[in-house]
Each structure stands twice: as structure tokens, then as C-alpha cells.
């Protein structure tokens, strides 16, 4: 795995970010407390947390759908969001640079025809027609949906809809894409397709990814995992480091599959042990460990 954290310059920086929701009685419920994160260019960051941990609030703040009560957000070293009302041009430029794919695939597709939906973003940016055509074709090719370009959006499966939504964001050529639980409503095969697309965008296109999820196996694919709990950063580090702390994760209602934590533990202790970026059941995990140990010459072959 390439380590983006070493050479990437900071792209998004949050400083002491706080946000609270107001309920019907006027009481404030803190959703995010003093969150300071630096996300380098090209990083694949997974944000983990159980329901109500503030992970979706963080996504909305980064996309300027919400404004923080306190703290600031910097994009490329430039202050874009703070508690004071931003100007429209700043919001527009942040949303162009930081795209967002939402949870429900149905509620983010605007048009009835696939390619028209992908064109929606570039059309909003005021890009000339011929260039929109190129971008739409390229974006559909990047997510592997070219053959559906003229099809109806309502006939697609959940995973396909989500890939169309991703294409709609790619066509706006953002530098960073936030996935706000974008895989949570999909079946396993749709989930796999979307995760493959995310990995492709990160590794081949160098797009910074912020993947918000509560799925451990998806977080394991990232370069870095941030665990949120009660609106605060609870853990922050490489997946192998995070997954080697099952007790701490369990304390914030997140559970690591035993096989995953074992593999990550081994990865941390044995030099050269490759940690796979997917979860395994007990049987395949055992045979994987065996083959890795044999490869490293630490166990005898049968």
C-alpha cells in the first residue's frame, strides 16, 4: 500500500470544530466537540463511529451544508468555514472541490436518464456543452457504467445507482470526495463495486477520499482510520494500529471481527506480514496466515 500520509500536503484542516443541534425545546445537543484533523492530499481516510457519534455532522460541516458553532475549516491552507456566514463564492468553490456522495442512492439522482444525471453537476458549474459531454463520458467510464448511459435511472440496482451518483461527482472534477455512509444501503455485491470504485479513484486518480462508515472491513481498506465517539476523536491512526485495540473499539460500541484484529496484530508484530484489505471468516483467515508464514519462511511447508 502506498503511504499518502508522508508526502501529501495538507488539503483539509479542521481546527477545534464544534457543532450542536438544537431540539424543539431549544436545548442544544453537542454533535461534534473540538475536532481537529489534518487530511493530506491523496489520503484515503475512513471515519468510523456508531450512530450519533457525529460522523455525518462532520461530513456536512466539511461540505458547508452546516456551519460550525466554533472552530475553522481550511481547504488548501485557506480559511473557508467558520461560525460567521460565508460568501456564496466560497461555498460554491468548496463544493466544487469537495464532492459528496450521500447515503440513499435514490434521493441524490436528479434526472431520469443516466447521462443527464451525470451532466447535472457540470451544467451547474457552467461548463461549455462539448466539454460536459467529454466529462460525462469519462466519468461513466471511470465507474464502469458506460453501457447504461442512455438507460433510465429508475431501473438500476442500488449499487449501480450509487456508481452513477459517484460519476455525477467525478464529472465535476473534485479533488476530494466524501462518502457519507454511501455503502450502508447496498447489498454485498453493490457494496463491493462501490468500494472498488472508491479504491480506484484514490489509487489511480489521486482523489482524496473521506469514507464515513460503520463497516470495519471497509475501514480496513483505508490509509488512516479516525474513530469518533460522542463527537470527539477517540482514535486516529493506521488501520493496523486501530484494529489492534479491540477493547477500546468495543468500549465505543464498535466491534472488530476477531480475524481482522488477529491479522492486524500479526501485521504489527511480524516484519513483512501483509495484512489483507478485506475481512475473512475463520477458515480462510487460518489458511491465509499459514500461507503468509510459509512465504516468510517462518513455518514449514507441508
Amino acid at each position: 500500500m502506498t503511504d499518502h500520509t508522508v508526502n501529501g500536503a495538507p488539503f483539509i484542516e479542521t481546527r477545534h470544530l464544534s457543532y450542536s443541534y438544537e431540539d424543539a425545546d431549544g436545548n442544544r445537543h453537542p454533535a461534534l466537540r473540538d475536532v481537529s484533523l489534518t487530511i493530506p492530499k491523496g489520503q484515503f481516510l475512513a471515519v468510523l463511529g456508531h450512530n450519533g457519534s457525529g460522523k455525518s455532522t462532520l461530513a456536512k460541516l466539511l461540505n458547508m451544508i452546516l456551519l460550525p458553532d466554533d472552530g475553522e475549516i481550511y481547504v488548501d491552507g485557506e480559511l473557508v468555514s467558520s461560525s460567521s456566514e460565508p460568501d456564496d463564492a466560497t461555498v460554491f468553490s468548496v463544493r466544487r472541490r469537495i464532492g459528496m456522495v450521500h447515503q440513499n442512492p435514490d434521493n441524490q439522482i436528479v434526472a431520469s436518464v443516466v447521462e443527464e444525471d451525470v451532466a447535472f453537476g457540470p451544467e451547474n458549474l457552467g461548463i461549455p456543452s462539448a466539454q460536459i459531454r467529454e466529462r460525462v463520458d469519462a466519468a461513466l467510464a471511470a465507474v464502469g457504467m458506460t453501457e447504461y448511459a442512455l438507460g433510465s435511472t429508475s431501473h438500476l440496482s442500488g449499487g449501480q445507482k450509487q456508481r452513477v451518483a459517484i460519476a455525477g461527482i467525478i464529472a465535476m472534477t473534485p479533488e476530494c470526495i466524501i462518502f457519507d455512509e454511501s455503502t450502508s444501503m447496498l447489498d454485498p455485491s453493490g457494496r463491493r463495486d462501490v468500494m472498488d470504485t472508491i479504491k480506484y479513484l484514490n489509487r489511480e486518480r489521486g482523489i482524496t477520499i473521506i469514507h464515513i462508515t460503520h463497516d470495519m472491513s471497509e475501514a480496513a481498506m483505508a490509509d488512516r482510520v479516525v474513530v469518533l465517539s460522542d463527537g470527539e476523536v477517540f482514535l486516529d491512526g493506521e488501520p493496523s494500529v486501530i484494529f489492534s485495540k479491540p477493547d477500546e473499539l468495543r468500549s465505543v460500541a464498535l466491534d472488530v471481527p476477531q480475524s481482522t484484529s488477529l491479522l492486524h496484530e500479526l501485521g504489527g508484530r511480524i516484519a513483512g506480514f501483509r495484512v489483507p484489505d478485506r475481512t475473512m471468516d475463520a477458515k480462510s483467515c487460518a489458511s491465509y496466515i499459514k500461507s503468509e508464514l510459509e512465504r516468510l519462511g517462518l513455518a514449514k511447508r507441508d
Binding site: 461540505n63 451544508i65 456564496d88 460554491f92 463544493r95 466544487r96 464532492g99 459528496m100 450521500h102 436528479v110 447521462e115 443527464e116 451532466a119 447535472f120 453537476g121 457540470p122 451544467e123 451547474n124 458549474l125 457552467g126 461548463i127 461549455p128 456543452s129 460536459i132 459531454r133 460525462v136 455525477g168 461527482i169 465535476m172
Partner: peptide, 13 residues
């Protein structure tokens, strides 16, 4: 999020 602002400087594919 997809920069929709109504009919402000919008183009068509």
C-alpha cells in the same frame, strides 16, 4: 452539494 444554484450561469450538455 452538486453546486445547484438555480438558473445562475447554468449550461446544458
Amino acid at each position: 452539494c452538486r453546486c445547484y444554484r438555480g438558473d445562475v450561469e447554468r449550461t446544458h450538455m
